[in-house]
């Protein structure tokens, strides 16, 4: 167990090291940091003095070490475009993205699992066929198109829901939340559905195929033979056994929800990190880009690590094979 945990930890650290190296190289070698900071009329001596002051003439490994030390303290440099420290910008926008991702994941789970159970139990009913075709659309339709269709129907034609922004937010300490106001909650509906649609389709199809598989096994037959009610068989035995892969996939999908939030935020002008990142790319705002990269990589690494460890705890087979991580 310990060896497995250690190996996964080392791997995660290695990933973070490479990502930090990439972020640093972008930060250091894409464009001249000095030229971004001073005006046209700054003299060469002045620029040189600034270079020395900022340590840009030091050996590259020293600069890298300094960069990493800064990142660990939460110092990510100053945005070229907005002229404010990047950590402030991120802290402002992080709550918006996390709330959106959370609601989207919740929506995908709460709608996806029941749909999956239903289509798994009654594969021949017409509703199952409709749901399955819809889920194919959910997978094939691009995220932004789903968002645009929702806006067109519920925002423009029916005028029911707000089409951009977060509505009113309440500030609690450093956190700004849209959960506490009516307009905030209404603003969440369409972006969350847009973002969660793909995961919903994925979870539904996964639960369905797992259900179909489990229902064929002997222990289900045995449970029926014991005279258990359908309800007990379906939910107590079958569903429980489908949940391990669902938890894994959902865990791994949280990362991509946060990444795909870039698109959803862009459609709904949602003031989160994704929108910040897209604007950073358009304006080649390197500090913001590299910070986003590090942050997202950190999310992914932590999520993957947690999922792996959970999997290891849940699935005893992994322990027998010396804990190779299953992949």
């Amino acid at each position: 167990m310990l060896a497995f945990v250690l190996r996964r930890l080392v791997q995660s650290l290695l990933v973070m090291f490479f990502v930090a190296l990439l972020a640093f190289s972008m930060f250091r070698f894409l464009g001249d940091p000095i030229a971004q900071m001073v005006g046209q009329d700054t003299s060469l001596q002045e620029r040189e003095r600034l270079r020395v002051e900022l340590g840009l003439n030091d050996p590259v490994p020293v600069q890298f070490a300094r960069y990493v030390a800064g990142v660990l303290k939460g110092e990510f440099g100053i945005s070229y475009r907005i002229g404010r420290p990047v950590d402030e910008l991120i802290a402002e926008r992080l709550p918006a993205t996390l709330e959106l991702s959370f609601v989207a994941a919740l929506f995908a789970l709460l709608a996806g699992i029941p749909m999956g159970v239903y289509t798994g139990l009654y594969p021949d009913r017409w509703l199952s066929k409709v749901l399955l075709s819809l889920s194919l659309m959910g997978i094939a339709l691009p995220t932004f198109l789903i968002g645009i269709l929702l806006i067109l129907i519920f925002g423009v034609n029916l005028g029911l829901l707000p089409t951009f922004g977060r509505g009113e937010v309440v500030h609690i300490g450093f956190w700004s939340t849209g959960f506490l106001t009516i307009s905030g909650l209404k603003s969440l509906i369409m972006p969350a559905i847009t973002l969660g649609m793909f995961q919903l389709a994925l979870i539904m199809r996964l639960v369905r195929s797992e259900m179909l598989e489990v229902l064929r096994t002997d222990f289900i037959k045995f449970a029926r033979a014991r005279g258990l009610s359908n309800r007990a068989v379906y939910f107590g035995h079958a569903l429980k056994n489908t949940l391990v892969p669902v938890i894994t996939i959902t865990g791994l999908q949280i990362g991509s929800i946060i990444a795909f939030a870039i698109i959803t935020e862009s459609v709904f002008q949602w003031p989160g990190m994704g929108l910040l990142f897209i604007q950073a790319i358009q304006f080649v705002d390197i500090p913001v880009m590299s910070t986003y990269l590090i942050l997202i990589a950190f999310f992914f690494v932590v999520i993957n690590l947690t999922v792996d460890l959970l999997y290891y705890a849940v699935d005893p087979r992994l322990r027998v094979h010396g804990g190779a991580g299953g992949k």
Binding site: G255, A259, I281, V284, M289
Partner: peptide, 18 residues
């Protein structure tokens, strides 16, 4: 481990910088 679209965005951003 990263979604393809994120990698594509990043490469696009780096190329813009270069």
């Amino acid at each position: 481990t990263f979604p393809a679209i994120l990698v594509a965005l990043l490469v696009d951003g780096i190329m813009r910088g270069i």
